[in-house]
């Protein structure tokens, strides 16, 4: 076998790598072209790099605002989901009060059913609470939705920790809050990092929640913002490509830096 098998293997691997990467490279290149150039020669390497497209998309296309909103949602949703999930996961996984199984079962239900199962009544609930058209109208349901997976993940991590460590600290006179923050939480760090990374990705990519609750132009994150932009300016291809580039670069940058956490997190999340 030897060389030919190795060669065929690499040929296939590279072929698929191109298949997964090419579409993005194409769009990123298109972002640096004029619409006329895209129409004339869609696949050519850009003749003159028009960096101005990105700046124009940022201001005129309002992608700056959309990305700002995405960041804002992530800044609120990720820490809130993480904090609440750690607290509840610790209670359920390590302290295990009476009724633990029932409460955990309720959280499990939230992982099992899709968002579509709750979105209709939730929409009217948000409306009746006067949260429609506000930042909180997007943040609060996102946090609630994230809790199902967050509590599930953190409970699993706290369950796996030796409880004797906490008991030893208690004998030494540490309070319950201190046991949690100084001893148990640091031990659950791998789970916590996984949760932060995954929740950031969920929040950055969320689509239906802002589509329903953040319809106001000023509330749109990048995902729905770019969709509405296309609805209005579908022929302005270089702007669309610039928008896609601006929307994809941050998440890809985070992914490349924290690659292992993304992959381990998604695999662990699926296997847990």
């Amino acid at each position: 076998m030897g060389l030919t098998v190795q060669g065929a293997r690499y040929l296939l691997l590279i072929l698929f790598a191109v298949l997964f990467l090419m579409p993005f490279v194409w769009i990123w290149f298109s972002a640096l072209k004029s619409t006329a150039e895209i129409n004339a020669d869609p696949f050519g390497v850009p003749g003159e790099l028009m960096w101005g497209n990105l700046a124009e998309a940022w201001t005129t296309g309002r992608f700056g605002t959309y990305i700002g909103n995405s960041v804002l949602y992530a800044v609120f949703v990720v820490p809130l989901v993480t904090a609440f999930s750690c607290l509840a996961g610790y209670a359920l996984g390590a302290r295990r009060p009476p009724g633990e199984r029932l409460i955990f079962g309720a959280f499990l239900l939230g992982i099992m059913v899709p968002f579509q199962s709750i979105m209709i009544p939730q929409y009217y609930l948000i409306r009746d609470l006067d949260l429609l058209g506000t930042y909180w109208g997007v943040i609060v349901p996102s946090v609630a939705l994230g809790l199902a997976f967050g509590v599930f993940l953190m409970r699993a991590f706290f369950r796996g920790l030796p409880q004797e460590i906490g008991n030893a600290a208690r004998i030494d006179g540490a309070g319950e809050w201190r046991v949690f923050t100084r001893i148990m939480l640091p031990l659950a760090r791998p789970g916590l990092i996984t949760l932060v990374v995954l929740q950031f990705m969920f929040t950055w990519n969320m689509f239906l929640i802002p589509l329903l609750y953040g319809q106001d132009e000023n509330l749109r994150p990048i995902s729905t913002g770019i969709m509405f932009f296309i609805g209005e300016y579908s022929v302005d291809r270089s702007m669309i490509a610039s928008g896609v580039t601006l929307a994809s670069i941050p998440i890809i940058a985070v992914y490349l830096v924290l690659q292992r956490h993304f992959i381990q997190g998604m695999t662990a999340g699926a296997l847990k």
Partner: peptide
């Protein structure tokens, strides 16, 4: 977590 979850997920 329980309060948010009950109001915004379980109730709907």
């Amino acid at each position: 977590a329980g309060a948010l979850y009950a109001v915004f997920i379980l109730y709907p």
